[in-house]
Every structure is written in C-alpha cells, then in structure tokens.
C-alpha cells in the first residue's frame, strides 16, 4: 500500500518536471508542411487534368495520389522523409504521404530478414492498425447505411 502511494507521488512529481511539447510551433510547422504537401497534390491534379482531358475527376485524383505515394516512397528510400517528418509532425502524417512512409520504412528496415519473413511480414507493422480500423469502420458504416 505504501509503495502504491509512493509511486503515485513519484509519477506526479515526474509529470511536473517533464518539459512539455510547445503546441504553437508544432502546429505552425504541421500547417506549413501539410499545406505544402496538399499544394503539390493539387499541382499534380491540375497537371493531369491539363495533360489528359479525357480522364474523369476520380481517375485524375487516383493518378495524383499514386504520384504522391511514389514520391514519398522514393524520399523514404533516399533517407530524406524521416527528416521531413521529424520537422513537420502531423503535417506529414495526415496526408497520404504518412501512410506511404509508414509502409515503405519497415519494408526497407526488415528487408535484411528476407522477402517473406522480412518485407511481407513486417511491412504493415505500423500501418496495419490503420488498415484494420478502416476496414472495420467501413463494415460498421455499411451496416448502418443498409438500415437507414
């Protein structure tokens, strides 16, 4: 019992000592980086609409996403994206670039354990929960939609 009290007090004490992350600089950085990524995406969107007028809007946006995903994977491979992500935080995570990076980085990291046990098994260690949540969420929404 005494130990529990001591631990609670110690945790409170440590919490008071821990330096807090400064919210405003992080928010501004995330806003700038997220904005830049979205602007690049919009640039690709406009470019593809101009180059291929026969494509529908959803096809153009798929092409744009593919380009952004490719660029992120490429930058991850070059070892640049982790520096960008460490600077911009959520600004790099929220757009599809974060998802792309979270799949390509374990693939690179675990390549040394072989294609099956390394790349295939470990590829979704970080992005896996996102996919599971997405699938479960869509099932739930689907059911709700069915009875609405």
């Amino acid at each position: 019992m005494d130990k529990n009290k001591r631990n609670v007090n110690y945790n409170l004490y440590v919490e008071s000592k821990v330096p807090k992350t400064k919210a405003w600089p992080s928010l501004v950085k995330a806003f700038i980086l997220g904005g830049i990524i979205c602007a690049i995406g919009q640039g690709f969107f406009d470019l593809y609409t101009y180059l291929f007028p026969s494509l529908t809007e959803s096809e153009v946006s798929t092409c744009m996403l593919m380009s952004i995903i490719f660029i992120t994977c490429f930058l991850t491979g070059l070892g640049v994206y982790d520096i960008i992500g460490a600077w911009g935080g959520a600004g790099s995570v929220i757009p599809i670039t974060g998802f792309s990076n979270s799949i390509s980085s374990p693939a690179i990291e675990f390549k040394k354990e072989g294609i099956i046990y390394g790349i295939c098994v470990k590829m979704f260690t970080i992005a896996g929960p996102v996919i599971v949540c997405g699938v479960v969420g869509s099932i739930v929404c689907g059911f709700i939609g069915l009875f609405m």
Binding site: T21, D82, A86, S105
Partner: peptide, 17 residues
C-alpha cells in the same frame, strides 16, 4: 532503434523526454 522503437526511415517525432 529497430529492436526497441521504430524503423529508421519512419518520419515520426520524438517526445522531449
């Protein structure tokens, strides 16, 4: 890093501690 945390190339932020 690989054993205890994340892949090296993951663009995540570390907490100040």
């Amino acid at each position: 890093e690989r054993q205890y945390r994340f892949p090296l190339e993951l663009g995540n932020q570390r907490p100040p501690t």
